[in-house]
Design a protein around this nucleic acid. Structure first.
Length: 422
RNA sequence: GUGGACGUAGCUCAGCCGGUAGAGCUCCGGGUUGUGGUCCCGGCGGUCGUGGGUUCGAACCCCAUCGUCCACCCCA
């Protein structure tokens, strides 16, 4: 029985995952970001300190377990804290900058929904040691390039905000509480509860009444500290220069405590309620919070499931064709000779995918399987062919006549054809 | 955690007012020897999500439970 919220990714979809991921990794590579591979298991403390004790993620969504020595561990619910920990512990943040990315599963105990699973996958991108808005702009530019590479750029929109310094946020928080306390009656129940626990989160409530109660209330931009304000203006100027469209969303807040200053999110309306495919921002306080030396940093995380979903919605899905050439063996005794011949062909035509029929059966049945597999060609090995070092090449998709060719000629005929087909 | 819809063959689904299940696709075999796709014939395949209840009788009605999907919440 499959565990709730877990997903099996089967051949066709796995292929698309690989295509989507490799397209993104390729872009990251060209931006000179370096890959790191990080553990899925960390201490609970890393997340309660880094992500924040009062966040939903830490409060009620972590998969916790106790190690044999009594240590409280958690399956990582996000990647940034672990990445900061890893780079800091390995001395990579001392007087230097780092631009890295990582990918892999994250775990959150949530109610599963389309585009939201208990094990989900992220590609995280982080830049450490850079405090100016130029790196924020680079990260956003990188995001744009990712969507362009996947052909989904037209389906996403960038939302932007600045949540300022911790001190500015504290001041705004007080003002917000002061404004909402007398209007408590018109808030939805969730927001009323948050007034005490996490008032900033009330800003992105979807309740009509709550949104009305916020009208004419304190605006965060009036509380933004000068340095953050300048940083934000700098970022917007850079985005304008880069011709990157964005929508300012003063109600965009992050669910994780470590964010400061710039926050951004790419959303799409083609995925229903789970519209955020990528989100991030600056987190200047995180490294210090984890016990390192104060280090400015910024980054974002991509929801791989959602990006694949969006990619599929835009481009459609076609059944996977696992092989280009399906090789049939006419007599059971020829199987060894056929396997050897096909292996020589694989070396001569490395771009092509060869599948050799296994399990015996009549030629009729083997050709039927060749056809069903979607392969473009069938290659037949009979007694006569093996004896003479030949193979019969049959075009399953065109009208060309079947030909008996030497193996080298088969390779020459097929090589380079796969790309031409697509 | 809250609300709603839905769980019937491997897949997509039908099944009327309660009378103990069907189709299409897939798969396997056949339509004579080493030639696929189309067509024809045959076959495999279901404790109707699970457990209770009502009834002479439940896929169908009721309750519970699990699961899926959608929305809220939260987030990637």
């Amino acid at each position: 029985m499959r565990v709730r919220g877990m997903r099996d990714v089967l051949p066709g979809e796995a292929r698309r995952w690989r295509d989507v991921e490799s397209a993104m990794v390729d872009v990251l590579d060209r931006f000179a970001y370096q890959e790191v591979r990080l553990p899925m298991l960390e201490t609970v403390e890393l997340f309660s300190r880094g992500v924040g004790e009062a966040t939903d993620i830490v409060e009620k969504e972590m998969y916790c377990l106790t190690d044999r020595d009594g240590q409280a561990m958690a399956l990582r619910p996000e990647g940034t804290a672990g990445c900061a920990r890893a780079l800091d512990e390995n001395g990579m943040l001392y007087n230097q900058t780092q631009r890295v990315f990582y990918r892999g599963p994250m775990f959150r105990y949530e109610r599963p929904q389309k585009g939201r699973y208990r094990q989900f996958h992220q590609i995280g991108v982080e830049a450490f040691g850079l405090s100016g808005p130029d790196i924020d702009a680079e990260l956003i530019q990188l995001g744009c390039e990712l969507w362009r590479a996947l052909g989904i750029a037209g389906e996403v929109r960038l939302e932007l905000n600045s949540i300022g310094s911790p001190a500015a946020r504290a001041a705004f928080r007080e003002a917000l509480i002061g404004w909402l306390e007398p209007r408590k009656a018109s808030l939805d129940p969730d927001s009323r509860r948050r007034l005490a626990t996490n008032p900033l989160r009330i800003l992105d409530s979807k309740s009509e009444e709550t949104r009305r109660a916020l009208d004419n209330g304190p605006a965060f931009k009036d509380y933004l500290d000068d340095a953050s304000s300048e940083h934000y203006a700098g970022l917007k100027a850079l985005l304008a220069e880069l011709d990157i469209d964005y929508v300012e969303n003063p109600r965009l807040v992050r669910g994780l405590d470590y964010y400061t200053r710039s926050v951004f999110e790419w959303t799409t309306d083609r995925l229903g309620a789970q519209g955020a495919i990528c989100a991030g921002g600056r987190y200047d306080g995180l490294v210090e919070l984890l016990g390192g030396r104060a280090t400015p940093a910024a980054g974002f995380a991509i929801g791989v499931e959602r990006v694949v979903l969006l990619h599929d919605a835009v481009h459609g899905v076609s059944p996977e064709v696992p092989a280009d050439v399906y090789c049939c063996v006419l007599q059971p005794g020829l199987h060894g000779a056929a396997l050897a011949a096909v292996q020589r062909l694989r070396r001569m035509a490395p771009a092509l995918r060869f599948r050799v029929h296994a399990g015996g059966g009549k030629l009729k049945n083997q050709l039927k399987r060749a056809d069903r597999s979607g392969a473009r060609w069938a290659l037949l090995f009979g007694e006569a062919e093996i004896r003479e070092g030949l193979a019969a090449l049959k075009d399953l998709r065109g009208s060309a006549e079947q030909e008996r060719l030497r193996l080298a000629d088969v390779a020459a005929r097929l090589n380079g054809r796969r790309a031409a087909k697509e």
